[in-house]
């Protein structure tokens, strides 16, 4: 698949950067003229993944979060969110709705929301090495949404 465009950025795992991260990806995807629902789905998925990096991967430290995003020529957006934090021991368990290791105010819905709001989700993780979450979302051309270009 040929790429139309791409960008990358990295930033420290400070919670103030959550809005910066989802806003940056949304601004990049805006070139595809997405619907409000599509852009909100992407913002929500990115926010969940970045929050996971902050509260889980770098629980007791500030580390670097890396985002790479590209657009394929079929308008599929691929967003990779990577950290070099603690990693996930049991990915299957981590992806179960309502499962959380920290409780309190966390709902345990991060992966469930990412799965529901994207077309496809891949999670690669190595304990002690870090985690990469890849989100795929195809932006529908407007003519297939409205019946005309």
């Amino acid at each position: 698949m040929k790429l139309k465009n791409k960008f990358s950025l990295s930033f420290p795992s400070r919670s103030a950067n959550e809005s910066f991260a989802r806003g940056s990806v949304a601004a990049f995807v805006a070139q595809l003229d997405p619907t409000l629902e599509e852009i909100n789905d992407i913002k929500t998925s990115v926010s969940e993944a970045v929050t996971n990096c902050i509260v889980h991967a770098y629980k007791n430290e500030v580390g670097q979060i890396y985002i790479y995003c590209d657009i394929a020529d079929d308008n599929t957006v691929r967003i990779k969110i990577r950290d070099k934090g603690c990693g996930i021991e049991n990915i299957k368990q981590a992806m179960e709705p309502l499962f959380t290791t920290i409780g309190g105010e966390r709902a345990g819905l991060g992966f469930a929301v990412m799965q529901s709001f994207s077309d496809n989700l891949k999670v690669n993780s190595k304990p002690g090495k870090g985690t990469t979450v890849t989100i795929f979302k195809k932006i529908m051309p407007r003519y297939t949404v409205n019946g005309k270009q």
Binding site: T44, E48, G104, E105, R106, A107, L109, V113
Partner: peptide
């Protein structure tokens, strides 16, 4: 204008 699952956690709490 925007909410992720932190908003659900807020309501649950």
């Amino acid at each position: 204008t925007f909410m992720d699952s932190s908003g659900i956690g807020l309501v649950m709490g």
